[in-house]
Each structure stands twice: as structure tokens, then as C-alpha cells.
């Protein structure tokens, strides 16, 4: 564990807490893409297949459980909670994410560390996470003004993978033979997808204005 990876994990946890706060405090999920939440639930379930077979540390197991439980709880809220589900922007959240799932799985069948079920699903989860934010970014562009908590949620979600990139650079420099090409390249793509969001987020912070993404 290094400071970059810890910062990444804490930022990721923070993004989830901000999203839970937004849904709980406002009893609303307006501006949140359910499709992105569903993709993240798939990402965590596909990535943590080793949850009960490989014990790495209490921290590792605890965080995996938090990520799986929170993503499923958020999807459940957005689908079945009688109050929250009414504020779902159904007509705006129309990104056809089936292609993202299919393409990620196809790529995982081709490019993986080892051709085993666990490794193919791990690579699938890495590729899928890289594109999972797309429905959310599309929804933000369509829904015009973005409430503060939603903006902070997306910001922290993008920032966590940037910390992981620093972590991979650090490990590459300090650990012999450390390579994480699949996660590294996907992580760069994932963070790059946030580039324009980060730009408009910075502008709104500098001008102290409402966050607005151009349509």
C-alpha cells in the first residue's frame, strides 16, 4: 500500500458517500444515471469474484464489501425506493450501455493476464469501469444544471482513478517487475474521459458559478 493508492481508495469511498448523502438527504436521484450505477455494480461483482477465495487483508475485504453493497443499494434505491425512484431522469438516461458491456467482455476474452474465469472477469471489470461513466456524463450534458453533490460525486469518482495512475507509476518505479498494463492503460482512458468534466468543474469552482456542461 502506498499513499497514492490509499488516497485513491479514500477518494473512491468519498465519492460513494457523497452519492449516498445526495440520495438520502434530498430523497432524490435526479441527475444521477442509473445505468452508470448498474455498470459499477457489474464492475465490482465481476472484479471481486475472489472475495471469498483470496484473503488479502481486512482492509481489502472490507472495502470490497462496501463497494459491492453500496453499488447494489444505490441501484435498488433508484429502481424500487418509492420516493427516490420517482426522481429518476428516465427519459434522459438512455445511453445504450449494452454495447459497453458486450465490447468490454469481448476485449477481455482477447486481452487478459491469464485465460481463467477469474482473470477474464477481472479484465472485463477493468475495461467496463473505464467506460462506465459515459451514461452519467451524457446525462449531465442533457440535464443542464448539475446540483453540487452530483458534481462532487462525479469529480471524486474521476479523481480516484487518477490517484491510481500515480500509484501504478510509483509501484513501477519501486517494485521490480511490477506491471499492470491492462489496468494502467484502461485507467488512463477512464481518467481522460473525465477531462472535459474536470475542465468545466474547475471553471465553475474558479468563478464560483453553477456547474454547467455544454450540451
Amino acid at each position: 500500500m502506498n499513499i497514492f493508492r490509499l488516497a485513491g481508495d479514500m477518494t473512491h469511498l468519498l465519492s460513494i458517500l457523497v452519492l449516498l448523502l445526495k440520495i438520502y438527504a434530498t430523497k432524490s436521484c435526479s441527475g444521477i444515471s442509473r445505468k452508470t450505477q448498474e455498470l459499477y455494480a457489474i464492475v465490482f461483482m465481476a472484479r471481486y469474484l475472489d472475495l471469498f477465495t483470496d484473503f488479502i487483508s481486512v482492509y481489502n475485504t472490507f472495502m470490497k464489501l462496501i463497494f459491492i453493497a453500496s453499488s447494489l443499494a444505490i441501484v435498488w434505491c433508484m429502481r424500487f425506493h418509492p420516493v427516490v425512484r420517482r426522481s429518476y431522469d428516465r427519459e434522459l438516461d438512455t445511453f445504450r450501455y449494452f454495447f459497453l458491456v458486450g465490447a468490454s467482455f469481448a476485449l477481455a476474452l482477447v486481452w487478459h493476464d491469464k485465460f481463467t474465469l477469474q482473470e477474464v472477469f477481472w479484465a472485463f471489470s477493468i475495461y467496463l469501469e473505464a467506460v462506465a461513466i459515459l451514461p452519467q456524463l451524457v446525462l449531465l450534458q442533457r440535464s443542464g444544471n448539475v446540483d453540487n453533490l452530483t458534481g462532487q460525486y462525479v469529480f471524486f469518482l474521476g479523481a480516484y482513478r487518477a490517484f491510481y495512475i500515480l500509484n501504478w507509476i510509483y509501484r513501477y518505479m519501486t517494485e521490480p517487475r511490477f506491471t499492470r498494463w491492462i489496468a494502467g492503460i484502461s485507467g488512463v482512458v477512464q481518467t481522460a474521459l473525465y477531462a472535459d468534466f474536470f475542465y468545466y468543474y474547475f471553471i465553475s469552482w474558479k468563478n464560483n458559478s453553477k456547474l454547467k456542461l455544454p450540451a
Binding site: 493508492r5 473512491h12 483470496d54 472495502m63 463497494f67 477481472w122 491510481y164 500509484n167 489496468a183
Partner: peptide, 10 residues
């Protein structure tokens, strides 16, 4: 090889 591509990250 086995140990260093061990998935220890989240």
C-alpha cells in the same frame, strides 16, 4: 511471476 501479478488492488 505468479506472486507479482497477484491482484492486491481494489
Amino acid at each position: 511471476k505468479e506472486e507479482d501479478d497477484f491482484k492486491d488492488e481494489l
